[in-house]
Write a protein that binds this DNA or RNA. Structure first.
Lengths: 196, 196, 196, 196
DNA sequence: GATGAATGAGCTTTCATTCAT
DNA sequence: GATGAATGAAAGCTCATTCAT
């Protein structure tokens, strides 16, 4: 029933939730706040989502789906695996920069709570990480990335580095610097690390 | 008020909290569960800590203090900045491996909640990160680490990589592999990245 | 407002309500369930009934009206007051047997809730009981029923006996025995009690 | 844990619940009303009872236990089965008269709700009814009660009669007549019915 | 110091009812 | 007349915190 009823309200609720979760954190966020932010009645939320948890899951899955598709499209434009990796890092920062609240929710809220890291099998996040390992494997096949690198480890290491570098930026009220500036820095480090 | 009363109970409560927070997550953990695990009455907890939040802060600060001191001692034994970095990575994994519950709490729970990343100025964590930047700066001064590396960025990148690589291990019920195995891998990547 | 609109829908809603109230109980029944069962929209119900309470009242009044008329017609065929009483008991069981859901609603749901036994003056139910007292009074006038019997008490005693004997049958999922079998038994008891 | 904590509060809550359930009905009764009536905090109720349902079950079971024991003691003083039956009827009315709220709750509220007549196996109520059938069986063995009477049916018939006669009295605000007056009347009816 | 029974504010969720279409 | 999406009041229950013993 959900999305059919009114795609608009579904979207408004998700967007309100991103804002409120980013500001208060999932557990401190109140349904009534989300409702107010989305300009709907409290009860309306339950026409679109089963529960508060469900909002978080949907917001995560839908956002990740979009991001993954966007990145896939962009990476397809690059030929060289190393260029793909550079592009990936660049895109990650650009996306975080363009959606700071979403970035904060995904980074901060989703990590918490056994609900989402233990019980909830986080397929979308694995897909995101696998964008990295695919490129690395491709690079290894072509001989441009060191063979002794284990993609399954390095995908997490890279994501962790990006994520942690991103965190203080996402949490700061006033963004003092642009994330994109950091991209080259991290890129250099990683490319050197895995190629030389 | 705190430690003077009974160092024993203070410690028992912190340790119980680590266990319970790791298992249930901070927000789903109940004071009464911690009390039971620590074998004290619910009210007793409030003789040692101001609030539930306060337990998390103390558990974090005390743990980090111990870890930082331990690492400082160990790093002092190394002369070469690059060896220090290798040792740091090694130690980080060893510590996580030896305290999986604590690692999970610090990694997962502390990141969440504006309570602890926005309002609470996380000095200890900065100190931990600065262990890394100090070594890097030392390396740059001695000319063994590239000058174009910005320590303030790289400290987060390295920590993020270690943390994220650590996460699936900390969350898995059965530890299928040893974290130490990963140390060399990450070390190679980083040392190459920042030296070559 | 009511019946004029569409006798069909009015009836379908009442019948759906009987089914749902019997299954879930008045308070646990949802308007949306009744609507679904009646194959109308939720809002449509409010074109035919003022409120959820109103449905129960109407279902009761209309059903009782029908039952009372039916019984009156049947009793008119008997001459002897004692035969009338026998016939009444027989009919009561037959009616319950033929409308188990309705019987359950009337027996179980209507008794509850001050709404219906205190504020709501239950004329129809009194009419039903008075079918009994009329016959008894007639019997007393003709000298076939003991004069020391107080009809106003005995009408309730008889109804209570019938109702309570009926209850386990109405509540059982699988009807293991036929109610009619019980009719003779209760009849014997009562007739002896009030005549000898 | 329940009763041990404070028998006093357990009792106060039960008594408050009897009052509030009688006045508003189970479903319309609010926990906060019961709490107020019992002069405890809302949360305190949950130290003594698992849920609102649990209060009703306990109030029923504890009350019935007391009533059953009391009646058993009294019946033991009578020798003749017929006298026992007379005494039972008398006692039933006396008990209802002495506890009108409790009577109303048991009579009105407990009958409702699948919770309590379908899922909840009402052992205590069966025990109460079996007080009647035991006496009848005893009377049949001694030859003072008709052999063709089926105790399992008559126990319900008698209870139903008592219950229904009782209902208008229990529901009336001002008690215009004494229930005890009715005892003899019903007794006569039944004794004649089952003996002659 | 220690206890744990008591408190009561607070929040998610439900659902009868409404009303724009 | 009919619809069903939207509403928002209402209430059961939880649990951090307190305080009399």
């Amino acid at each position: 029933m959900p999305t059919q009823i009114s795609p608009d309200k579904h979207k408004r609720i998700i967007e309100a939730a991103i804002k409120v979760f980013a500001k208060k954190g999932f557990f401190n966020a109140k349904i009534s706040e989300i409702a107010q932010e989305a300009d709907v009645a409290d009860g309306t939320i339950y026409l679109y989502f089963k529960s508060k948890d469900d909002i978080l899951i949907h917001l995560f899955e839908e956002s990740m789906d979009r991001l993954i598709k966007l990145i896939q499209t962009e990476l397809a434009k690059e030929n060289d695996p190393v260029s793909k990796l550079k592009r990936f890092i660049q895109l990650h920062f650009t996306l975080v920069e363009g959606n700071p609240n979403l970035a904060e929710v995904i980074t901060v809220e989703l990590r918490q709570s056994n609900k989402f890291m233990k019980e909830y099998d986080n397929v979308k996040f694995r897909d995101y990480l696998n964008l990295i390992s695919s490129v690395i494997r491709e690079g290894q096949a072509r001989g441009v990335i060191r063979r002794d690198i284990v993609p399954a480890i390095i995908k997490r290491a890279l994501f962790g580095a990006l994520d942690e570098v991103t965190l203080p930026w996402a949490l700061s009220e006033k963004k003092k610097y642009s994330l994109s500036e950091l991209a080259e820095h991290i890129t250099n480090l990683f490319i050197s690390g895995i190629t030389c």
